[in-house]
Computed example of a mutant assay.
Amino acid sequence: MRAGRVAGTRHEGGSGIRAPRVDVAELVRIRTHHPEAIAEAAVRRARRPLLNESGRLMIVAADHPARGALGVGDRKLAMANRADLLERLCLALSRPGVDGVLATADILDDLLLLGALDHKVVMGSMNRGGLQGASFELDDRFTGHRPEDIERLGFDAGKLLLRVDYADPGSLTTLESTARAIDAMAARRLPVFVEPFISRRTPEGKLANDLSAEAVTRSIAIASGLGGSSAYTWLKVPVTENPDDMARVMETSTLPAVLLGGDIGDSPEDQVAAFEKWRGALQLPTVRGLVVGRSLLYPADGDVAAAVDTAVGLL
Rank of each mutant, 00 (worst) to 15 (best):
R5I: 07
R10L: 15
H11F: 14
V22S: 14
L27V: 05
V28R: 14
H33D: 01
H33Y: 11
H33P: 02
A37G: 02
A39Y: 06
V43A: 11
P49T: 12
L51R: 15
N52A: 15
H64T: 08
P65H: 07
P65G: 05
A69D: 13
A69R: 10
L77N: 14
D84P: 13
L85P: 11
L85V: 03
L89R: 10
S94N: 14
V98I: 10
L102N: 10
D109I: 00
D110M: 01
L111N: 08
L113M: 03
L114F: 03
L117A: 01
K120N: 05
G124M: 09
S125G: 10
M126N: 06
N127W: 05
R128A: 03
Q132H: 09
L138H: 08
D140A: 11
R141V: 01
G144D: 04
H145Q: 07
R146Q: 13
R146F: 03
D149G: 04
R152H: 13
F155M: 10
G158E: 04
L160E: 02
Y166D: 03
G170T: 03
E176M: 08
A184E: 11
A187P: 15
L190R: 13
V192Y: 10
V192S: 05
G205D: 04
K206C: 02
D210K: 03
V216G: 05
R218M: 02
I220R: 01
A221Y: 00
A221V: 06
A221F: 00
I222A: 00
A223R: 09
G227S: 06
S229G: 04
E241T: 12
L260P: 09
L260G: 04
D263W: 01
D263H: 06
I264C: 09
G265D: 07
F275G: 10
E276K: 13
W278Y: 13
L282G: 05
Q283N: 13
L284N: 08
T286R: 14
G289M: 07
S295N: 12
L296T: 10
P299W: 11
G302R: 07
G302L: 08
D309W: 02
V312A: 08
G313R: 09
